[in-house]
């Protein structure tokens, strides 16, 4: 699973700093999940941020807890 996080000023300040921290922690505790984290420059969606992309799908306005639960959902729904 590839998760891209917008590291632009606005998204970083609106919560992606905390999201990245939460994801790094989650990834280190769930090594079997194969999560690839990547930073991204401004996605030009600042006003709806923080922005992340999970396997290409744009997810907006999520905090760390919401991102983790979204991640769990996606993993559970996988065959």
């Amino acid at each position: 699973m590839k998760i891209e996080l917008c590291m632009g000023s606005s998204c970083f300040a609106r919560g992606n700093a905390a999201v990245l921290e939460a994801l790094e922690l989650y990834a280190s505790q769930h090594e079997d999940c194969e999560i690839v984290l990547a930073g991204h420059l401004c996605l030009r969606e600042c006003s709806k941020g923080p922005n992340i992309r999970i396997d290409g799908e744009l997810c907006q306005g999520l905090g760390p807890r919401e991102v983790i639960s979204r991640l769990k959902q996606l993993q559970e729904s996988k065959p």
Partner: peptide, 24 residues
């Protein structure tokens, strides 16, 4: 974007050929 160097206050730096430092 280089996710190895950041903290809660400072977003990570990036790299680009021909430039010494790219930051937020």
């Amino acid at each position: 974007v280089d996710l190895s160097s950041w903290n809660a206050d400072i977003p990570p730096a990036s790299s680009m050929k021909g430039v010494d430092l790219v930051t937020e």
